[in-house]
Design a protein around this nucleic acid. Sequence first.
DNA 1: GCCTGTGAAGCTATTCACAGCT
DNA 2: AGCTGTGAATAGCTTCACAGGC
Lengths: 215, 215
Amino acid sequence: MSKDGGRPSGRTIERLSMYRAVLRRLQREGKTHVFSHELGELAGATSAQVRRDLMGVGGYGTAAHGYDIKQLLEGIKDFMDTAERVKVALVGVGNLGRAILTFFARGRPNMEIVAGFEKDGRKTGREFEGIPCYHIDEIERVVREQDIEVAIIAVPAEAAQPVADSLIRAGIRGMLSLAPVCLQAPDDVYVETTDLGVFVDKTIYFACHMGEDDP
Amino acid sequence: MSKDGGRPSGRTIERLSMYRAVLRRLQREGKTHVFSHELGELAGATSAQVRRDLMGVGGYGTAAHGYDIKQLLEGIKDFMDTAERVKVALVGVGNLGRAILTFFARGRPNMEIVAGFEKDGRKTGREFEGIPCYHIDEIERVVREQDIEVAIIAVPAEAAQPVADSLIRAGIRGMLSLAPVCLQAPDDVYVETTDLGVFVDKTIYFACHMGEDDP
DNA sequence: GCCTGTGAAGCTATTCACAGCT
DNA sequence: AGCTGTGAATAGCTTCACAGGC
């Protein structure tokens, strides 16, 4: 069976994450097995794509019943997750930050938000969804002390780079920024940027230019 | 001079949207011209990538000063935007919805949020950021009456598909869903899904597996 | 018959590299 | 000398298509 073929691409990881979400839902609904074409339909991928992605995680499927959901979730977990739950910080506890807290509050198996940071003094010292909220100046100390490895940045555009700089000084390994700016960071810190404005523009573009043929 | 070469890809549109954000910022800072490598650095792309993207919008650049920012913004606008500002609905006015409202409140040139929808009766009938909030049952009527073409869906996962169905019945052309489910829709409705959970998983994965070589 | 796993083909996107201009 | 615009080359991703199994 040769070697397992290099590192997976970002696209593959995104899809695996979606498959996992779908699989968990199916499991809650009582299903135990699923075919590649079903999973594909529910996750927005073709069956061939699903099979190829699952190949990478050592996918044990059978022609008779498709994939065993429990086994598959286990496989994806082994493939993607780290041994311990990753500790995550949330910087910015405004509307967006609180939405994120609610979203992740009921805990995911692979991560845990352990600290929030805010500039606004009326929010610091309190708890949100059970997460303590510190002042933004404490980022370096708290991130170090608690071995926080990943941060979600939900602050206004102007504040994003300074926040990133603090996190980098504190030794963060990865950041997900929701602010509409491309953060500068050293090569050994992974940065992912998700700008809502971009997705709105994209949706508008394709919604309004659909079915236009080149003349 | 030959044909302008087919429809641009989603990736290209995403980058154009980011370039635009950067260009607007540079313009506010008083700059009038920019080189492809500068724009690339600020937007997270290579200079070659920038030049190729801008070629598509008829990029007028000169070797001496690079691209004229004003002209370029005009070009991107002509290329991407529709003649009229697109009317957008926001479904779900919880924390996430309100974050979106604040984010887009100061208006973008190409779109305008004109209505919010909520299930929670305590929010309906009021205004948020100057946007009227209707009950979710009124989606069909209001979307039709106001010629709303695009919707942003910021409701919990379980509610997303029913909301999408109402929007589709109302004749929506595109939807951006922030719920972690892949929406079913007819082919003539464009659907974009942005699941935060996926991006968090991805960030965690790459942050924690960086610098691992195949043994 | 209908499924998985997978080499090979096909396609799309990105980068290279250089002509042409200032 | 340094930049844009762009054909050509490369790299990366997705789909095809079929062998093998239940």
